[in-house]
Design a protein around this nucleic acid. Sequence first.
DNA 1: TTAGGGTTAG
Length: 577
Amino acid sequence: MICRALAKRDRNFFLNLITKATNQSHLRQTHAQIILNGLNTDLATVTKLVQKLSDLAAISDATLICSNFPNPDLFLYNVIIRGFSRNNNHSNSLFIYRQLRENTALKPDNFTYAFVISAASKLLQLQELKVGMAIECLSIKLGFHWHAHVLTGLISLYAKCGDMSTGERLFEQIKHPDIIAYNAMISGFNCNQEMESAIALFRELLVSHQRVNSSTMLGALSLGKWVHDLASKENFKSNIYVSTALIDMYAKCGSIEEARQVFDTMPEKNAVTWNAMISGYGLHGHAHEALQIFDKMVDSKVPLSGVSFVSVLYACSHAGLVKEGEEIFYAMVQDHGFEPLSEHYACMVDLLGRAGELQKALDFIKKMPIEPGPAIWGALLSACKTHKNTELARLASDKLFELDPENVGYHVLLSNIHTADKNYDEAASVRQVVKNRNLAKTPGCTLIEIDKIPHVFTSGQRSHQKTEAIYGKLEKLMGKMREAGYQTDTMTALHDVEEEEKELMVKVHSEKLAIAYGLMNTKRGSEIRIIKNLRVCIDCHNFTKFISKITERVIVVRDANRFHHFKDGQCSCGDYW
DNA sequence: TTAGGGTTAG
């Protein structure tokens, strides 16, 4: 009987066993049997085993087996290069590729390049890749440029370097671009903010291919809700990528309830899904919900990521939950073994600063083991504006002017801090620097959609067809609001818009115009939604509160930082933004 | 026995 159990098994037996394995422990047992049967030097068996191990996230086992294998061929190298990449260890993919080139006589093939280019483009996302690798990949093109898969990988790489013109050139070289090549292009246009191009290509794709796939849906999600309908019709609701992007889309479009609905109905969630839901709640100022989801994530088997902590800390800082934020930060280090990155430190400075604990924030910066960058000083400067601390503001802005001299926002912020402090000379001299150095300014603008047509307003704009009616409406509203106790706040009406202190006397902020226009063109009682590119100022925030009360409307404002839901004279942000 | 594209924060 024993003899039977130990009877020699052949390669096919093990190949079959490996294919059927569903977890790592199956494979470890199988590996033991392979050794007992003397097949651990059989290339085909070992390759299959390594491939399956990396598919089941056992990349260290896979590597060990490979490094003990006497003469690995190109196929085995390819499998391990791809394996590292699939396990999110892209730098090791590149490392193995280098080993292959420097320590062996093997010639990489089109498969090798498809894997290694994909790994390189993923590293770019992590902002770790040096330009040198991109150049190295360019040389690859010389040998394998006719392979559509390699070209598609290169498109993605160039897109992530912000070079879509090269992307377009590569795309033209593909004789019959398939759906995946289209998707690489659409997603490239998307991340490079070339919407208007993304849409055109998406339309072209719909004409040229009968069916779209899940990546297409993702590339086009920012087009809006109708994509969700398309996703439902095409049955992509169970795709984790599509559903996660839907959560993000709904949260960013202001429908946090719909985001939650998608989240709740997902059969399977990964870390990105959880993070998207947490950050969605943070964006809307619903910190307690964000914390609840975070706790559930900890309970689930899904491993936390650095982004999970950024998202939950962001939610805490925007709701004034200092104690909770601090607890999470220390748990992150002590319980979860994460080493905080600069973005985590920035979240903490923001958390303390927003809550008015400026000195504590400064002490925190001094104790940090890393050199504070612009995000950290920027958070402190912003807090100095809110809590009117001119002295610390000078310190923070000096650092910022040194670290990020081209950024006009910090100058504007400092000028506004001086203005609020009634120190007009200092404010003027800061603005003079901006003028002398000819730094680019960002004009504030607000968008409102009426009957699916977007209307964009800028501060003091008089070019809209209905200008007279809009300003008339605004006058009427102002009258009613003053009766209700509204007073214009010009002193502190400045966050990061420039020179609007002067303009305020004669001009009107874009969000007021958009809201007036919205009130004129929507049904009584319906919700008004607007989007502003800069942070909403204190006066407009106050204005919108009054409007929501006297007109009995819900007004949802998305500014550069977050959502504000105005209802019955109150804002969901609790004036904490 | 191996391909390429896609989701989250600041």
